[in-house]
Structures are given as C-alpha cells and as structure tokens.
Design a protein around this nucleic acid. Structure first.
Length: 641
RNA sequence: GCCGGUAUAGCUCAGACUGGUAGAGCGAUUCCUUCGUAAGGAAUAGGCCGAGGGUUCAAAUCCCUCUACCGGCUCCA
C-alpha cells in the first residue's frame, strides 16, 4: 500500500494511505476536526470531503468556521434554488449553478421566469430549507449518469467535458432531488439561515452568444438570517452612493430622454468638477512634454478605412452622408493624431513626439449597456499619443505609468491592474510583441505593481496595461490605460529618418490617465460619496449670514475670497436650516457670520465634518484655503489642523 | 442585442390587483418671521399619469406596440 504526504497549513506534514479522503485526513488530525469537516482544499482548490488523495498535496480542512464555508453553503443554496425551480417548472433543464463572490446563481434552460415565479421559487426554497433535508453524496457509473440526463444535453455535455473520464461520477441528493455535481456541500439544507432570490437574467450557455440562451437566477445565502439582512442593507446603502442619484441631487449632470440615450448634459456644478480635472491633467501633460492638439468631431470615414477600424467597428459608428460622401463622428482620437504627425517630416532626434487632447468621441454602444456616466455614447478621453522609436518604448511607458500613479495617488483610488498580451489575431512581428510585452512587464515589476496577466486579451495592434475601478455596486470599469500600437504607424505610413538616413517606422503608444472623463467622474462621485475635496467641489465655501442684516458683510467676505467658488446663502431661513442645507449639498466649508463677527471683522468656520472654529480672521481662512486647494488635499482641514 | 423589472408634480412615492372627479411629503413661489450652528409658520401654484394604438358608456388602472430607464448577460477600438 503506497502512502502520500499531505502538508497542513501550519507546515506540518502527515503520511496517509494513497486514496485516503480529505475527511480521513481530518480524522487523522483529530476526531473533533473529523466530525466538523465540511469540505477540504487541496492545493488551494475547494473539494468535497470525499475527495481521495492520491499524490502529495497541500491540504486544508474546511469547517463551519472557515472562510470557505460560505462558498460551500452557497453551493448548496444553488441546489436548493434548482430544486425549487423544478418543483414549479418540471420541464426546466438544469445546467450549471456555481457560487460567486456575492452569492450564487443557477442557469436553467427551457423555462421563462417572471417576478411572480421568483416569489414562488423563494417560498419553495424557504420550505426546502425549513424541512432541513440531508444533503448526500451519491455516485453513479457513467452509463447511469448519461441515462439520467437523457433529455438534458447540457448535463451530458458536462459529463463529456468537465467530468470526462470520471467513473463513477458524483451527484448530490436532497429530498429526492439529484444534481450532477463535484461538491462540496454542507450536510443539510437547514444549515442555510438566510436565502434570497435576487434577480434573473438571460445568460448564454458557456458564455457564448452563439449558443443557447438560458435563464439565470441569482440568489445569495448566509448561515444566518442576520447575515442576509446585513448584506441586503449594505446593498441598499450602496445605492445611496450611486453617481446617478448623487449626480441628480448635486445638480452635476443629467441624461434626459429628449437629448438621446447615453448623451449626458453637464450642469454648471458638474462642468466645474470636469474643468478642475482637465486643468489638473493638462498641467501634468505639459510637464511631461505633451503638446496639446485639437481635432474635429467629424471626419471622412476614409480616415477609419485607413486605420482599419472601419472594417471592425463600422456598425458602432455614427455615420452620415454629406454631398454623397460618407462622414462619421469620431469613435477615437488616434487616427487624427497620427495624421497630424504625418503632416511633418521627423528626425530620430525629434522623437518621442507626444500629443494630447481632451477628445470627445462617439461610440454607438449596445442599448442595454448604457448606464449613467459609466457607459455612454458620447464621452471625452484625456487622450495622449506618443510616437516613439522602439528603443524609447520602455522609458516612455515608465513615464506614463508614473503619471498614472501620480493621478491615482492624488485621488487615493483603489484599482486593479491587468497586463493583456497578444491575442490570436494580431498584427506586428513576433519580435516586437515579445519585446514590448517584456518591457511592459519589466516596468510593472520595477514599480512593484500587483497585476493580473490576461493572456490573449490584448488589442490586435499591441499589448496593453489597463487599470480598473470598482463602482458603488461592485462593478468594475476600465480607467487609465497604456497601449502599444504597431498597426497604426503602418497603416498611416508613419516614418522618421534615422541616424542611418533611412526611413523608420515609429511605434505609437496610446495612453489615458483618466480613461474617459465621464467614467472617471462617476468613479470620483462614488469614491467621495459626493463629498469632493475642496479643490474639486463645485461650491467650496458657503457664507451663512445669521440674519439679513449681515448680508452686506457676507458679500464683503465673499469678495475677499474671490479666487474661490463661494456663494452667499440669502434665503430667509433660520441658521439651523441654512446649515442643514449646506451639509446636504456637501459644501466643504460654511462661514457663519452674525453681528459679533461683523463687529470683529471675523468669521465662524464650520466644515462639513461638523467641526467648528470661531473668531477667525478672513485672511487666515483664505491663506489656509489656498494651501488646501493647491495641494489638492482630500478633506477640509482648516478646523483641526 | 438578449432575459426580467420600472415609468404618476422638480424629487421621493401612494392610487392600479377590483376601470368611475389624480393624492401626500419634500422642494418651488408669496406672505409672516430676522432667527447663533443639522428642517420656524401659513397660503398658493404645480400633472397629456413615458408615447402611440385598442377594449369600454367611461382607462393612470385592462390589452397590444414603441421609447427610455434599472439589474443581469453578451459586447467594449
């Protein structure tokens, strides 16, 4: 009998018979642990406690106290959901039902579910949980498994792919309901304390839009009812941060039906923030040697035929005929910039040449995709293009990454980085792809950036590094980006004269520090929960006179602060009401002034964090404001500094 | 584009299931109040009930179509 060695999380090792299960190992460690075993992890992968160990592995025992227990519980909850669906819709065909970060879902075929159905399913699931059925693992030989799924091509496909070669194959059973499944599961349906059906969606089998459309039902589950309640409450609270809600409340922007979908209007408050954002990166760009250019919104489509984008994206462009010629709104700025580059002749000494533009672009995104400011038809990219020699790429990328990190740091944002490499269909030589992917990796490593490698996810014209943000609802959106491009210089015949007096082709680098202003604005609204740093706040200071008699003094104070965005509250409200409103409007500073202040020539400063300081000379406050704004500090810090 | 949901006053929502004069709070306006650190009082105005069609003596309400929005899927140069 051969033995294998398992390594426990604390580094200790244990020799067990080959074929021993996870549960056997747990009992080996201790009978208490054995009894508590729910599942196991082998080399980090969640497995059933019945999983045999046939080679040396790292093992972890999952009990009710483990972080992974929630995943196991939700996996069982998915089965409960499936059983509940089948009770009302016996013809539905089950496909897959995994746990996710927030809960679980089950994809089913041949069934349509509306809101009433979901209510029934919820009640049915609660009954199944209430009945506290045992969840048992059962094993069938392959032939029996195929027979069981005679009418279910999805499960048969799983038997032929994921479960290929498994014999017997495992099922899990509760109350007569059986589902092909590797496990693991909790011991009984009653372990689920809180269960909630959340929503439905269409989903494609295998995520492939050319295959069957399935009905996906999302849900979540927790060991306790309280856990579920907390989760649902957190979800509600997240909606309060939603930029669409805050954008309306703070009068930042609107997207009225009459102007068309995905075409946002920026109100004065919103434009103020965008202007500050723009000024900030314009300063950075100029410092880094970028020259500002401007290109029109409308071009002959010849331009995109030349760039090659027309072939791939013509369906997503806004086109129009002008004097029998086809024109289109620009979906990107790079061809315009490439054309500007092409208007001059360049020496190798001139490179890198760097252009930037706040360029508004128009992309006809799928209707179902439009969402607030995060996905729109018209948006502005803080777009930059560098024309560089191959030997300059690494340095240029390094400089761009520095810029991006400076921006991210300024706003104190959380983000994830991904390096996307060469896709199957691509242009450019093996050498240049290998070289540039290596250079991107080196820069990332040098700067100690944690990043995900996304093989094959690069653009057809070159590899890229993307930075992604999460919104209030936990969805991720791409922001800053660095992309190398070997295609466009070729398409536009771009060249420079080398030291050898021959013509050479530059490499183009696309980069954006924000990505799109719209999306970045969305991220900031939600990140700050509407409480913008003073330098960004649409209204930086609001002056609250105690009575109308102090209005004159209020305006004199406003004049002293005329470098800043200051308003005087002149409605005939009580002071308390004025303060309430200023807090609701997220104004960083309130200056309360009555007769005492007017006589002394001072103000009383209150910030939106409810901190106060009285008897402040206006000049003192103004000096502070100057520093706070110039340094782009995150919170108003006059009081408490 | 696909599945599900939603659409009533500037905003948040009730009324719809069971067809019969369109409601509340907040906000706005006017008047009173001039107030010292998170909502002072009163009055008034404000709606083609998303759009179009149908059923009916009668439609916010029932049916159909469309549009927009919300969640998810797919896509994202």
């Amino acid at each position: 009998m051969s033995t294998v060695t398992v390594t426990l999380p604390d580094g200790a090792t244990l020799s067990v018979e080959s074929g021993a299960t996870v549960e056997d190992v747990a009992y080996e460690i201790g009978p208490g642990l054995g009894r508590d075993t729910v599942a196991g992890k082998l080399d980090g992968e969640l497995v059933a406690k019945e999983e045999p160990i046939t080679e040396d592995r790292e093992i972890e025992i999952v009990t009710e106290d483990s972080d992974d227990y929630l995943d196991v519980l939700r996996h069982t909850a998915a089965h409960v959901l499936a059983q509940a669906i089948l009770r009302h819709h016996p013809d539905a065909k089950l496909t897959i039902g995994p746990y996710t970060e927030e809960g679980f879902y089950y994809d089913v075929a041949d069934v349509e579910l509306d809101a009433d159905d979901l209510e029934e399913i919820q009640e049915e699931a609660e009954d199944i949980i209430e009945a506290d059925y045992d969840v048992e693992r059962v094993e069938y030989d392959r032939e029996a498994a195929f027979e069981q799924y005679e009418d279910n091509p999805f499960k048969r496909e799983i038997l032929e792919t994921e479960a290929a070669g498994e014999d017997p194959v495992s099922f899990y059973r509760q109350d007569g309901f059986e589902d092909l499944c590797q496990g693991p599961h909790v011991d009984s349906t009653g372990e689920i304390g809180g269960f909630e059906v959340l929503e439905t969606s269409a989903a494609y089998w295998r995520g492939d839009e050319d295959r069957e459309t399935l009905t996906r039902v999302y849900g979540t589950a927790f060991p306790t009812e309280e856990g579920l309640e907390e989760y649902l409450q957190r979800r509600e609270e997240a909606k309060e941060r939603d930029h669409r809600k805050l954008g309306a409340e703070m009068d930042l922007f609107s997207i009225p039906d009459v102007t068309g979908p995905g075409l946002p209007l920026y109100h004065p408050n919103g434009k103020t923030v965008l202007r500050e954002l723009s000024d900030y990166v314009h300063g950075l760009n100029r410092e880094m040697g970028y020259e500002e250019v401007e290109t029109p919104h409308l071009f002959r489509t010849e331009l995109w035929k030349q760039s090659g984008h027309y072939d791939n994206y013509v369906d997503d462009m806004f086109l129009m005929d002008v004097d029998d010629e086809e024109y289109g709104l620009k979906p990107m700025n790079c061809p315009g910039h490439a054309t500007i580059f092409d208007q001059s002749s360049w020496s190798y000494r001139d490179l890198p040449v760097r252009y930037f533009e706040d360029g508004k672009v128009y992309r006809r995104e799928q209707r179902g995709e439009l969402s607030g400011l995060s996905r729109v038809w018209a948006f502005t990219i803080d777009d930059g293009h560098v024309f560089a020699r191959a030997d300059q790429i690494e340095e240029e990328v390094r400089r761009i990454m520095d810029l991006i990190f400076e921006v991210l740091d300024t706003f104190d944002l959380d983000y994830e980085v991904a390096l996307a490499t060469r896709p199957e269909k691509s242009v450019g030589s093996d050498e240049i792809w290998e070289q540039s992917e290596r250079q991107l990796r080196e820069v990332l490593d040098e700067q100690n950036v944690d990043y995900d490698l996304e093989p094959g996810d690069g653009a057809f014209y070159g590899p890229k590094v993307d930075f992604a943000f999460e919104d209030a609802l936990g969805r991720t959106w791409d922001g800053p980006t660095v992309q190398l491009d070997f295609n466009m210089p070729d398409r536009f015949d771009l060249e420079y004269t080398g030291s050898d007096n021959d013509a050479h082709q530059p490499v183009m680098i696309h980069r954006a520090l924000y990505g799109s202003y719209e999306r970045f604005f969305m991220v900031l609204i939600e990140h700050y929960d509407g409480k913008f740093p003073t330098w960004l706040a649409p209204e930086q200071v609001r002056i609250l006179p105690v009575t109308d008699d102090n209005l004159g003094y209020a305006h004199r104070v406003k004049n002293e602060l005329d470098d800043y965005r200051v308003e005087v509250e002149d409605r005939d409200w009580t002071v308390g009401r004025k303060i309430q409103q200023a807090h609701d409007d997220n104004v960083p500073y309130m200056l309360v002034l009555g007769d005492d202040e007017e006589d002394a020539g001072t103000v009383s400063v209150r910030d939106r964090r409810e901190r106060e300081r009285n008897d402040v000379a206006v000049e003192t406050f103004r000096d502070h404001l100057e520093g706070e704004v110039d340094e782009k500090r995150t919170e108003p810090d006059f009081v408490g500094e």
